[in-house]
Computed example of a mutant assay.
Amino acid sequence: MKQVKLKIIAGRLKGKTLISLSDDTKETASIVRGSVFNMLFEVSGSVLDLFAGSGAYGFEAYSRGAEKLYLNDLHPLAIKSLKINEESLKTGALITSWDYPKAIGYYKNNQIYMDYIFLDPPYAYDIQPILEAVVDLIKPTGKIIIEIEKSHACPTVDGIHLIKDRVHGIKRIGIYQK
Rank of each mutant, 00 (worst) to 15 (best):
A52M: 07
G53Q: 03
A56S: 10
Y57D: 05
G58M: 03
E60W: 02
E60T: 06
E60H: 02
A61S: 01
A61P: 00
Y62G: 05
K68I: 15
K68G: 08
L69R: 00
L69I: 00
Y70V: 01
D73Q: 11
L74Q: 08
L74G: 00
L74N: 07
P76L: 12
L77N: 08
L77H: 11
A78W: 13
I79D: 06
I79C: 03
S81R: 12
E86M: 09
E86K: 03
E86C: 07
L89A: 10
K90Q: 15
T91P: 07
A93P: 01
L94E: 11
S97Y: 10
W98L: 15
W98I: 08
D99N: 13
D99Q: 03
D99R: 03
D99I: 03
P101N: 13
K102M: 06
I104Y: 01
G105E: 10
Y106K: 03
K108M: 04
N110T: 06
Q111H: 13
I112Q: 02
Y113S: 10
M114L: 14
D115P: 01
I117P: 01
F118A: 13
F118C: 12
L119R: 08
P121M: 00
P121D: 01
P122W: 05
Y123R: 06
Y123W: 13
Y125H: 13
Q128C: 10
Q128A: 11
Q128T: 13
P129L: 02
P129N: 01
I130P: 04
I130T: 05
L131W: 09
V134P: 05
K139C: 05
K143S: 03
I144Y: 08
I145E: 01
I145Q: 01
I146T: 15
I148V: 11
E149H: 05
E149Y: 05
K150N: 13
K150R: 15
K150W: 11
S151N: 15
H152P: 00
A153L: 13
